Amino acid sequence: MIMNSPIIEDTYAEAFSTKAAYLLITAATKKLALIAATEATGFATSFIGCPAEAGINSYVPPEKTPDGRPGYSIIICQNKTEKVKQQLLERIGQCVLTAATTSVFNLLPDSEVQDNLGFKLAFFADGYQEKMELYDRDMYKIPVMSGDFLIEENFGIVDAVAGGNLFIMAKTQASALIAAEAAVNAIREVEGVIMPFPGGIVASGSKVGSKKYKFMHATTNEEYCPTLKDVVDSKLPEDAEGVYEIVFDGLTESAVKKATQEAIKAIKTIPGVIRISAGNYGGNLGKYKINLVE
């Protein structure tokens, strides 16, 4: 493998604490499972303007699922346990219960904090629900038009880490995009990590607050906008014309660190990348420092 030699800034991504649930959605086909997982993790790119940060972690083949059907694991994050519970109820109730042939399983059985999501959703059955032991788990069977919707009774909620990030600066927008896609593909191989933004790539990286508008919680990060290099005190290399950010959340700090290093390795294989950096706020945002240089 040919490695490029971009400058890797000796800096860190400033990550912060969050709460997370880790679920498995299965269905009769891989396509149906992906549809349900995609719907359940929609409108969840950033805490700045969304009710959660969520994403698909990985495809899980039939031989590794409780019911022997294809599935996708997802992670849903919020900053408080009660908010995670609310997001579980709304997202699974509206986006997975309504999806064809789906079942839902808990991937955090040993978590100290549990939410009885299955019990709550079972009331949709209007008294026809049935609690049973199935697949060595406590499950609820909810009769629906298409047959039965199956969901585990309890779902774990754990402390997690949000805000891992990388800035990719390249000679062209095309090379920056190719590098970003390479980073996304690498991170997808790391268990327990999600990238909540569209396709895993952030086109509109932001800064906290605004220099001009008091009502804005976040605005464009002008120091990294290629078209503003001649207007602001830019942090971009002179020949950088393409910039993308990758943001990722993980169930553990070690998972976020691994995702960072795997992404950097992948980015370094792409010609045209000039510099790799990350966003931090001097420790004002979160307690985790995810170093780019180990």
Rank of each mutant, 00 (worst) to 15 (best):
P109H: 08
G164Q: 03
L117H: 03
A183Y: 05
A28K: 15
P226I: 09
V243S: 11
C225M: 09
N106W: 04
L177P: 00
T26G: 12
F215E: 06
C225Y: 00
I246A: 06
L24T: 03
Y288I: 02
F155W: 00
V243G: 12
A99K: 06
V193Y: 07
N185F: 07
I194Y: 03
M132T: 13
K30I: 14
M195G: 02
R188D: 07
I276A: 08
S73Q: 05
F123A: 15
E130A: 10
L177I: 03
K19N: 04
M195L: 13
I56V: 15
G49R: 05
L107W: 03
M132G: 00
T45V: 11
V273W: 02
F47I: 12
A54C: 12
V190R: 08
K64C: 03
S146F: 14
A240I: 03
S58M: 07
F215L: 02
S146G: 07
E53G: 04
V273P: 10
G192R: 07
A255C: 00
A255N: 01
P198C: 07
P226N: 07
T81K: 15
T101V: 09
Q78T: 08
T81S: 13
E153Y: 00
M3D: 13
I178T: 12
A203T: 13
Y22V: 12
A36Q: 06
A170P: 02
P198T: 10
C77F: 12
T220I: 07
E238V: 13
G283H: 02
I74M: 02
T65N: 06
A28F: 05
A174Q: 12
K31I: 09
E153D: 13
I187V: 14
V60W: 00
P143L: 08
G286V: 01
V232Y: 01
T65F: 03
D249E: 07
T81F: 13
Y59S: 09
I194A: 09
N106Q: 05
Y140L: 01
C77M: 05
A162R: 06
F47G: 05
E82I: 12
A28S: 15
V190W: 04
I48R: 03
A40P: 10
G205D: 07
N79E: 11
Y59L: 10
Y22R: 15
V158I: 15
K207A: 11
F123P: 10
V84P: 00
P66S: 06
D233L: 08
V60C: 02
A240N: 05
I92G: 05
M132K: 12
A37Y: 11
D233I: 06
I35L: 14
S175L: 07
Y128A: 14
A278G: 08
E39M: 14
P143V: 08
S206Y: 02
P226E: 09
S46M: 02
F123V: 15
I48L: 07
T26V: 14
N165R: 09
A160W: 02
L166V: 04
S146K: 11
K287P: 01
P51F: 06
V184Q: 05
L285E: 00
R91C: 06
